[in-house]
Design a protein around this nucleic acid. Sequence first.
DNA 1: TATTGTTATACTCTATAACTATA
DNA 2: TATAGTTATAGAGTATAACAATA
Lengths: 157, 157
Amino acid sequence: MRVAEDGDITGEAGPAFSQADLLDLTGYNMKRAYMRIYADFTEALAGFDLRQRTFSVLSLVVENPEIRQSDIARELGIERSGTVVIVDELEGRRLIRRADVPGDRRAHALTATRDGIALYRRALAEIAAHEGRLMNGFTASERALLNALLRRIHELN
Amino acid sequence: MRVAEDGDITGEAGPAFSQADLLDLTGYNMKRAYMRIYADFTEALAGFDLRQRTFSVLSLVVENPEIRQSDIARELGIERSGTVVIVDELEGRRLIRRADVPGDRRAHALTATRDGIALYRRALAEIAAHEGRLMNGFTASERALLNALLRRIHELN
DNA sequence: TATTGTTATACTCTATAACTATA
DNA sequence: TATAGTTATAGAGTATAACAATA
């Protein structure tokens, strides 16, 4: 409820609306920034027929051969039930394989196939390229700083 | 696909899974941080029976008396149809009013009621308090820096 | 023709709950 | 009793499309 102080009032060009209160809230700024970068992320993945969460699961499997579904759920902070449909899809596309775990007949060990690793590498490169283009105006240290701040927020509590 | 370099591998304490690739992506870090802060935001609003978007609309109406629904949609980057149900709810709770616009019989001018302003102020204070608690470990300049970076991302393109 | 508000509908994402088979 | 994986279902949240009234 303060007066806008962001120079957004251009005098006559058009009606200027104040978002002063909202723009003071990190939660609001985070949502808008997230929406913006998420759109870019989604676009980068579209050519690979991967959605954001599918990509994250594939990433974990590529980086951690023989990982279990429950570990993926824990790492990603999602429900176990949520991993099933993703793993089903990735397995159906022969990007990963479910294998038996010697000591535990309840669990499945997930490992990426050669095709899965190849697709993953190309998708990862595409995302990085998209982000590089999107965040073109940011210096390397600004990007590193932003990532560090975001990680600290996630790790809170 | 690099080896983790974040010291997350504690030797024996438990299985450490690598998220090195994902943690290099701003999009991934943003999503996790957003989820964390969004949960806090939602919790702060729960006592007021407000959801995030409802609060944002109320904020715009309080800060910009006689704003139109289409302006809200533009400012918030949402669909006009999305504003209708929110405005319906806020009006039904007597927090805002729809009024005629003298020059344009299609439009509605939205203005907050006394009750709406009062509720808004309390909700805003609660959110700020929640954020202050959540981001307790951040200095004021870190928070300002983070907000500035987030705004720059939103304004891209 | 374009815009404002509206309605109805559909879609995406995700969590919850209940179940089985193991441990 | 607890855990891994699974299935079915339900709920948010949101966009899309079509429409009437007005500009």
